[in-house]
Design a protein around this nucleic acid. Structure first.
Length: 806
DNA sequence: GGGCACATGGGT
DNA sequence: CCCATGTGCCCA
């Protein structure tokens, strides 16, 4: 008799441990660690993960597992261990760690229903309740929660006239198609066709199809109907008569079904590429683990190196994980891998539907692919024989998850690569200071790529001082130089990309007379103006209101929106360059699925002269006829309260500049800024990462920031300011006593956004070099506030190595 | 997260 | 004494 230890889907501290269950006889041999199950827990049923099997349990009265959801474990033993490690490293619940490793489709949904038990009926119920059961004998609790007479319902439940039913639903399902086949011989079929009455023409046709088409064993219902142009009624009759058989078959949803990928063959590597790939190949060959930092300027051919290294991995019979920032924004990477490796590639990114992601994941699980190209969570791909992990654009902030578990894909990659004895390749033109510093120290193996393929020169970068423009009377957001150059491209039939850095500078509404800015009533942040329906929206809580005609403070009518949303830039652009064809890319125009790609394809087909957009156009775009890139506001990000502000600005500017002149035509970049003297703007324009690195490192050292110190950020939130301040203060006090004197503890201070969704937010920052017990100490803090978190609406979130201070 | 047992406290 | 609300604990 075996027992199973199960981690249940109840993400609270009290249940963050394994519970034992009996295994029903029929699953004794089948069940394995890493499988999902449904188990009774308290009064209801929940999903859980089997972590261990054992022959004995200290608990006497065990319940049995009610359902087995997997036939093959969805978590390998390696992933189970990884889950425990994640739990320790990020201070999250075990269940959250496990769920983070699987596609959303595999997470359970729970429903609560109130229903009339079998043998009872509506008339037996109290009159106040009866109307709710007019349509059916069961109602969804969530739909009517606040409308129901609670007291009466409770009484009826006590009397047994109503019962509560909990349902566990699986979100994603395998996609199936109906298949039609016939087990009859040709002769039999022909006889049946002849015996059918003459008015059953369609039925005759259908059966004829089966004996005429020789090698058809079974055909999907859908195909059958389109080929023969008939309705499914006739087919169903034939099935009923027993002439045809209906079965279901699982199919994969293929997100790239109707897409052609340009086939590509390995290119001859440049000398530099050859030098760089050699140590990686050696690692692959020897099954040894090293972290490589491939530091290569844009256009130096990193992707080709990745692909040839992956090829070596595949040749060795191993698998590769390739991480890309947010891939729907960088479709070109998928295209290149699909073009080279075809159906050996699984793709996992946010642009896919839940079902599509599930199917791609299953291809990995079933070992039907040799590699995955995907965003952050693809690092948990259930491969068992990993030969290499690549993280492209290593500096991208999307590799850090901003909810629990707050992990960084880079850390997970290194953890897994160590276990598998394989290399990790980090690639970037602008590595994070952390990674570059490690490479300098020899912790990572630095692989520099300094030349652009085909010796293309870097684009020239002009910095335009917008203060000068204003002084000389130009009040538009386009400098004279930029307009001139845009115009020139249109005349030459070349294309331009205009980049608007919108973060921290979206269109807010301000009164010109009194300076009043309209803010969100629930969050301490200004509302953003949305053209669509003249609405004001809050970015953080979704609050919406109408754009007022007059200032709520002083009743002045001079109230209008400021800032530069993409919509406004487009309007202004049309005014000054009426002949330009513009494609605008922002949340509004790319909302629908696939819209993003469609716009890019249009631009690629030269259906427009100018592509205008926010961050999302900064990455991975590669169009041969783009010869001009304009950055409208280079420095908006510089003023955010974030110690990485300069680094991010530098990365972004470098990134954007890289979009120009990637092919035969030389490129030009124009950067508009109000702070042209800032080192990150200046150095980005000279493509000088090395000096930027040195300059920034000095500052980081001075201010005790990474990579010189580690950081932990504790954010406390609660509806009352006093409460938040008091708790944060207490935590700070406690930490001051527990941590070493070398460690700096800052705070309590209000968070950069002091209130979100009517909750006040305070934070405390811990800067440390060595704190062996930090995780334990912080865990204790969380435990200490357990009750208040539970019943007093307090929330404490801990981010060990935050990527943003917000 | 959700239920349950027990405590508190105010109202008729 | 009724019940509504709060609090601590348990779930295998």
């Amino acid at each position: 008799m075996k027992f199973a230890s199960v981690i249940v889907d109840v993400p609270v501290m009290q249940t963050d441990r394994a519970f034992d269950y009996k295994i029903p006889d029929q699953w004794q041999e089948l069940i394995k660690p890493g499988m999902r199950v449904i188990v009774p827990f308290g009064s209801r049923k929940v999903q859980g993960f089997v972590t261990h099997l054992k022959n004995e349990s200290e608990f006497k009265k065990l319940k049995s597992i009610s359902e087995l959801l997997d036939l093959t474990p969805c978590l390998t033993s390696e992933l189970l261990n990884l889950g425990n490690w994640l739990t320790e490293k990020t201070l999250c619940f075990k269940i959250s760690a496990f769920q983070a490793m699987l596609p959303a489709a595999m997470k359970a949904k729970y429903e609560k229903e109130i229903s009339i038990p079998y043998g009872h009926n509506r008339e037996m119920l109290n009159e106040s309740i009866q109307p709710f059961f007019k349509k059916s004998t069961a109602i969804d609790w969530k739909d009517l929660e606040d409308k129901l007479p609670l007291r009466d319902i409770q009484k009826e439940i006590e009397r047994g006239h109503l019962e509560v039913i909990y349902k566990v639903k699986q979100k994603g399902n395998k996609k199936t198609v109906k298949m039609i086949s016939s087990n009859l011989s040709k002769l039999e079929l022909r006889e049946i066709v002849d015996s059918l009455p003459s008015q059953a023409m369609k039925q005759k046709e259908i059966l004829s199809y089966f004996y005429e088409t020789k090698n058809v064993e079974s055909v999907s219902m859908q195909d059958l109907l389109t080929v023969l142009n008939c309705s499914d009624a006739s087919v169903r009759t034939l099935v009923k008569k027993g002439y045809l058989a209906e079965t279901t078959k699982e199919v994969y949803r293929d997100p790239y079904e109707d897409r052609q990928f340009k086939k590509s063959l390995p290119l001859v590597l440049t000398t530099e590429q050859t030098t760089v790939i050699a140590p990686i190949l050696k690692n692959i060959e020897n099954n040894s683990h090293e972290v490589f930092l491939m530091y290569g300027v844009t256009g130096s051919g990193k992707t080709e190196v990745y692909m040839q290294a992956v090829e070596a991995v595949v040749r060795k019979g191993k698998e590769a994980i390739v991480l890309v920032p947010e891939i729907s924004l960088t479709p070109q990477m998928v295209n290149r891998f699909k073009g080279r490796f075809g159906s050996q590639v699984a793709v996992l990114h946010s642009g896919l539907s839940t079902g599509e992601k599930y199917d791609e994941w299953r291809k990995i699980q079933r070992k039907e692919v040799k590699m995955v190209v995907g965003a952050r969570s693809a690092i948990f791909a259930p491969f068992e024989n990993i030969g290499m992990i690549i993280i492209d654009e290593e500096h991208e902030s999307s590799y850090k998850q901003e909810e629990n578990p707050r992990y960084h894909a880079r850390d997970v990659a290194i953890y897994r690569a160590k276990k598998h004895g394989c290399p990790v390749v980090l690639g970037s033109a602008t590595p994070t200071l952390e990674s570059f510093a490690r490479a300098q120290k020899g912790v990572y193996h630095l692989l520099p790529l300094t030349e652009r393929v085909n010796n293309r020169s870097m684009p020239t970068v002009e910095i335009v001082d917008m203060r000068e423009e204003l002084r000389s009377g130009n009040r538009t957001m386009f400098s004279t130089l930029l307009l001139e150059q845009l115009d020139k491209r249109i005349q030459k039939g070349e294309q331009s990309v205009l980049f608007l850095n919108r973060r921290g500078y979206s269109s807010f509404v301000m009164c010109r007379d009194c300076g009043y800015v309209i803010g969100c009533p629930h969050c301490d942040i200004s509302l953003t103006y949305h053209r669509h329906g003249q609405k004001l929206k809050c970015h953080y809580c979704g609050h919406e209101e109408q754009m007022p005609n007059q200032c709520p403070e002083c009743q002045s009518e001079h109230i209008r929106f400021f800032g530069t949303g993409t919509q406004r830039v487009e309007e202004e652009l049309v005014k000054v360059l009426p002949q330009a064809r513009i494609i605008r890319m922002d949340v509004d125009t790319t909302g629908r699925k696939g819209a993003h790609e469609k716009l890019l394809t249009q631009f690629g087909n030269k259906e427009a002269d100018i592509l205008l957009g926010t961050q999302m156009i900064a990455k991975g775009l590669d169009f041969p006829d783009v010869t001009l890139v304009g950055v409208l506001t280079a420095d908006t990000m510089l003023h955010l309260p974030d110690f990485r502000a300069s680094e991010k600005t530098f990365q972004l500017l470098t990134q954007v500049s890289g979009r120009a002149g990637r092919h035969e035509l030389p490129g030009e970049v124009i950067v508009q800024t109000y702070t042209p003297e800032h080192y990150s703007v200046k150095l980005a324009s000279h493509h000088n990462y090395d000096i930027f690195y040195e300059t920034e490192m000095i500052l980081r050292k001075q201010h005790a920031y990474p990579p010189f110190y580690y950081i932990a950020l504790i954010t406390v939130s609660h509806p009352e300011v006093t409460k938040v301040a008091a708790v944060t203060e207490k935590i700070v006090h406690h930490l001051r006593r527990q941590l070493s004197s070398e460690t700096r503890i800052l705070g309590p201070v209000a968070s950069p956004i002091p209130r979100i969704k009517d909750r006040y937010r305070y934070q405390c920052m811990v800067k440390y070099k060595r704190e062996n017990n930090l995780n334990d100490i912080l865990k204790k803090v969380l435990e200490h506030y357990q009750q208040q978190i539970h019943q007093d609406d307090l929330s404490i979130s801990i981010d060990l190595s935050p990527s943003t201070m917000m």
